[in-house]
Amino acid sequence: MLGPYAAFVVSAYAIAAAVVMILIGWVVTDYRRQQAQLRDLEAQGITRRSQREAAP
């Protein structure tokens, strides 16, 4: 179907897919890491000024 240059075409698409997956994975894991760190800090009573002011 892709002729004699199939390896070049398939490699290009496979590398592009891998890089996009890595970017998505990086963004998702980074978000989870930051959320977990924020939760840990808040559990220790360390909160932002705006949150302290909002608290009853």
Binding site: V27, Y31, Q34, L38, L41
Partner: peptide
């Protein structure tokens, strides 16, 4: 969004 959260973590 991640970068804003990272800066909040740093300030806390």
């Amino acid at each position: 969004r991640n970068e804003i959260l990272r800066r909040r973590v740093r300030s806390l």
